[in-house]
């Protein structure tokens, strides 16, 4: 059916035009991982190092800006110091400015996170718990956590469902 095709063409062009500034904003290419890949980002990203995907080993993540959240969680007891890459920093590194993320765990648990969640002082992709790497048997190696104690807005069912542990893939969609 020719009509949808005709319609799709201009839409693609518009999308490309809109994403152009992001492409130009951070053209720095990603290095290739030297250790085992812990995170794979696919979809609408501006930078890639493995075909269309951006793959990270632990060192690459540690090289990105890091921040530490001190908070309690409903899955653990007591306060935890959680250190990791702020989600907004990671997305900025990948030139992502909007849309939705689909984060998937090693057991194929998947959840959608709007890019609008990625704000400074917002969620991080934690790789250290109380200064130690997190083993796979305890929520590791990567865990998206929000600063739950900072705001009641971070203590809702939706936010809890987005707090995905044993994270290994993110797909970015417009």
């Amino acid at each position: 059916m020719p009509a949808p095709v005709n319609l799709c063409f201009p839409a693609a062009w518009v999308a490309l035009a809109l994403s152009a500034p992001a492409l130009w904003a951070d053209p720095a290419p990603l290095p290739s991982p030297s250790g085992p890949v812990v995170l794979t980002v696919t979809g609408e990203i501006a930078v890639a190092n493995d075909g269309a995907a951006a793959v990270f080993d632990m060192d690459m993540l540690r090289a990105l800006p890091a921040t530490t959240i001190r908070t309690t969680t409903i899955w653990t007891t007591g306060k935890l110091d959680l250190t990791g890459v702020p989600l907004d920093a990671l997305l900025a590194r990948l030139g992502v400015e909007g849309g939705r993320l689909t984060a998937t765990a090693i057991n194929d648990y998947a959840v959608e996170i709007p890019v609008s969640d990625a704000v400074p002082g917002g969620p991080i992709i934690a790789y250290l718990e109380n200064g130690a790497e997190m083993p796979r048997r305890k929520r590791g190696p990567l865990w998206i956590v929000y600063p739950y104690d900072d705001s009641p807005a971070y203590r809702t069912d939706v936010i809890y469902s987005r707090s995905i542990w044993q994270l290994d893939r993110i797909d970015v969609a417009r």
Partner: peptide, 14 residues
């Protein structure tokens, strides 16, 4: 590991 993690949450979580 996945089971272990899940069991950990289901028994040790707050």
């Amino acid at each position: 590991d996945i089971l272990h993690n899940r069991a950990d949450i289901a028994t040790n979580g707050a």
